[in-house]
Amino acid sequence: MKLTWFTRKGIIYLPVSIIGWIILIIALAYAVFTFIDIDKRSHSVSDTLINFVFNLLLIGLVYTLIAFFTEKRPVPEIIER
């Protein structure tokens, strides 16, 4: 079974199915939750941003890995001689 949840536009993966949209919404919601949690425990703006950027990179990495393995790839054309 071929999974096609995302398609690639440049360096960005866009969802093309309902599962892809759900994954994107979960990633964004988790990023917001992480920011709020870090902001509660930090003492300065720079402390918040430094800790949030690392978590945002991890969330982006997981999203990109899921999208890479479930993207819609073009079918290579077979050239007959």
Rank of each mutant, 00 (worst) to 15 (best):
F68S: 09
L24E: 04
I18V: 08
G60D: 03
L14T: 10
L65D: 00
I78E: 11
N55D: 11
P15T: 02
A27I: 05
K40V: 03
V53C: 06
V45M: 08
K2T: 11
M1C: 09
D37S: 10
N51T: 03
K40G: 00
V32P: 00
A27W: 00
K9T: 08
L3K: 14
L3C: 08
D39T: 08
F52A: 13
W21F: 09
E71C: 05
L49H: 09
D39A: 13
I79H: 00
H43Q: 10
R41K: 15
I59Y: 06
D47L: 04
G20C: 04
T64E: 03
L49M: 15
I25Q: 02
I23A: 09
L65Q: 04
I79V: 10
G20F: 03
A67H: 00
S17E: 05
I66H: 08
L3A: 12
R81A: 10
I25K: 02
V32I: 11
V32E: 04
I12E: 15
T70Y: 04
G60T: 01
D47V: 01
K72G: 01
G60C: 07
L49A: 12
K2V: 12
R41I: 14
T48N: 10
I26R: 01
V75N: 02
H43V: 07
A31Q: 15
I26E: 05
L65C: 08
K2G: 03
F68W: 06
I25E: 05
T4F: 06
I50K: 12
F54R: 09
P15I: 03
I22G: 15
V45N: 07
V16L: 11
V62R: 14
S17F: 02
T7Q: 14
P74N: 12
A29C: 13
V62P: 13
T70Q: 07
A27G: 10
I50G: 02
S46G: 05
E71D: 07
S17T: 09
R41Q: 11
F35D: 02
K72M: 03
G60I: 00
I11F: 11
F35V: 04
E77M: 08
N55E: 14
T48I: 15
I78S: 09
Y30W: 00
F35P: 04
F54V: 15
F54D: 04
I66S: 06
E71A: 07
I23S: 05
A67M: 05
T7R: 15
E80M: 06
D47Y: 01
L57N: 07
L58I: 15
N51Q: 10
R41L: 13
E71K: 14
K9N: 14
E80S: 11
T7V: 13
